[in-house]
Design a protein around this nucleic acid. Structure first.
Lengths: 213, 213
DNA sequence: GTCTATAACCCGATAGAC
DNA sequence: GTCTATCGGGTTATAGAC
């Protein structure tokens, strides 16, 4: 048996190089978007040749497609926690806020790459739509009113608007605020959109145990 | 005196051609973004030659710059009504909602061109920032709390998130909902972010003093 | 397997004919 | 004033040398 640490397999070597290329690609795509990112720049950034990138991934589209997949290592509580799916009413906003908090703490580069290219590249737009759809359905399912779909769409729009301005545009105070500051301000906002009663003040028998992290 | 209607002046002719080019440019930029829009396509769409476009505008940047200016004819109550500026507390959310309603009814093509290119073109991003800044300051001025800046940033992010998903991404029910539906759902949301008391009022005269940081 | 050279294409911008 | 022809540069993608 060959010792893997001493002499890495050919396949392992390749796997490692691929990963280095993908990381460089994610950075470029997230920073410049699809169109302005060149294979050459990605290759240089990864310390390899442009031809090699083509040899590995076949095309720029394929490279983007692979780079846009969020690696397992960067999946914390990303998107929308599955546990809250069937929880029913009353916890949609908290689940969404928790999801947003984690994304405000650190949004995966792959997601930023998709968001950056979303408006000018149809592949990225499709990927965004596909990724957002199940989340949207889950939110909708947790809202009891007849206009649940529209409410869910608004919640989704808010989440993405905040993330875009924080990470991609660096606008205003949104880029340096702590996740908690933002979450606290958005809580009543989300509760009203999720058709829930406000938590803080009124009367209401608070069963309201915030799900333990 | 030459009759203008019978024989249009040379300058008028040019003006007219320029406007046709600008309209075509706005459509293309709003639809495809800066990078994917070509001078050639704009020229073809306007029924003129590509060289003429260059002759008139000098460069693609300049063409975009001119196309991104919202023409006077399309300025309804755009942005943030000036009258509400010094109105002080209590009307920020309503003013913002009114502004949003008008934009949800019909957002100018020039604005869509900027929004579409915002994430992948620095000129467009700067233009967006410059346009958003005074509006942001005005909102901030109308919010009494210490974290007014952050609240204003969130309000701005929400507005743009909704507009982007409605017009540019056509996501979910957001694209076919009426402006009024959206406004009604967002009202309590905006009121809480503007640190105002809810208007409709379930119960609760909630003065809900927001903890000044 | 890795890298070099180059093909084929499209762009913005320029110069000049009509 | 309007349009044609073209230049120079950059891109993806391919073919082939090492």
């Amino acid at each position: 048996m060959t010792e893997p640490s001493a002499r890495p397999t050919r396949a392992q070597q390749r796997r490692q190089t691929e990963e280095r290329i993908l990381t460089a690609a994610r950075e470029k795509f997230a920073d410049l978007g699809y169109d302005r990112t060149t294979i050459r720049a990605v290759a240089t950034s990864a310390g390899v040749d442009a031809g090699l990138v083509m040899h590995y991934f076949g095309s720029k589209d394929e490279l983007f497609s692979r780079a846009a997949e969020v690696p397992r290592s960067e999946l914390p509580t990303h998107g929308f926690p599955a546990e809250a799916g069937a929880a029913g009413t009353g916890e949609v906003s908290e689940a969404l806020l928790a999801s947003l908090a984690s994304r405000l703490d650190s949004e995966p580069l792959a997601s930023l790459a998709v968001l950056r290219s979303m408006l000018t590249n149809t592949d990225a737009a499709d990927r965004y739509r596909t990724a957002a759809e199940p989340e949207l359905n889950q939110i909708t399912a947790g809202i009891p009113t007849a206009d649940a779909e529209l409410r869910a769409s608004l919640l989704s729009a808010i989440v993405h608007g905040v993330i875009i301005e924080r990470y991609l545009l660096r606008l205003g105070r949104l880029s340096d605020a702590t996740p908690d500051e933002i979450i606290q301000l958005l809580r009543p906002c989300f509760q009203s959109l999720a058709a829930e009663a406000p938590s803080g003040g009124s009367s209401a028998t608070e069963s309201k145990s915030p799900s333990g992290t």
